[in-house]
């Protein structure tokens, strides 16, 4: 009876504190695993693990960050290794403020980005994010999609603050390049000779 009561208390607390974050976990899991069935497995594993270790969660602390840490951990250990393709990206060849440079170089009118944004669909952005290497994608998604601070991301992904910042920066550069390449490929904006698109 008392065991059962304690069990029920635990269950109630978990459902109150942790379950509401499942939406967020799922949307991040979708971006991270890039497929629905893996994303669902990842979230399920995360929730079960969180429930098993619920007594380790400090009441009043940040439950969302705690759940994301568990999920990130599982992702890095079990999911990323599945498709460990070499992630050769020469980010450093990409200029800073890539979009800005291009848009001003080609002499677009004022607010050229409006013109570009109007033509890019959600799916194109999603695809660009999914094409980022795992390490960059993780910090980009945690920051852009979930709004975690640099420090929270460092805690969640077990990284140095400086690493978070540099990955986020490089992730942004890659995203800008991919979106611009996409826009040029589809003829939304003009190409300049220095844009090497494939």
């Amino acid at each position: 009876m008392t065991d059962q009561k304690a069990q029920l208390e635990k269950r109630k607390a978990f459902e109150r504190e942790a379950l509401p974050h499942m939406d967020a976990l799922y949307r991040t899991a979708l971006r991270m695993t890039k497929n629905q069935s893996d994303a669902e497995d990842l979230v399920q594993e995360t929730m079960v693990k969180a429930y098993r270790f619920w007594d380790k969660f400090e009441p009043g602390s940040n439950c969302r960050a705690w759940l994301f840490k568990i999920m990130t951990n599982i992702f890095i250990n079990d999911y990323r290794s599945k498709s460990r393709a070499p992630q050769a990206v020469d980010v450093d060849d990409i200029d800073d403020n890539y979009l800005y440079r291009h848009l001003t170089d080609t002499g677009h009118e004022v607010n050229p980005e409006h013109h570009l944004f109007a033509k890019i669909f959600d799916d194109d952005v999603k695809k660009a994010i999914e094409e980022l290497p795992d390490d960059f994608r993780l910090v980009v998604v945690l920051s852009f999609l979930e709004g975690f601070s640099y420090q929270e991301i460092a805690d969640i992904a077990d990284l140095q603050l400086g690493t978070v910042k540099s990955r986020l920066h490089r992730g942004r550069k890659l995203l800008q390049k991919q979106l611009l390449d996409y826009a040029i490929r589809n003829g939304f904006i003009k190409s300049t000779s220095k844009d090497a698109t494939t």
């Binding site: 799922y26 403020n97 959600d122 999603k126 995203l175």
Partner: peptide
């Protein structure tokens, strides 16, 4: 421009959540 790009990317990746799943 960077603020715009950032706001655009964030807005685009926030929506589209498959509710029924």
């Amino acid at each position: 421009v960077e603020q715009q790009v950032n706001a655009f990317l964030k807005a685009k990746c926030t929506d589209s959540n498959p509710e029924e799943r």
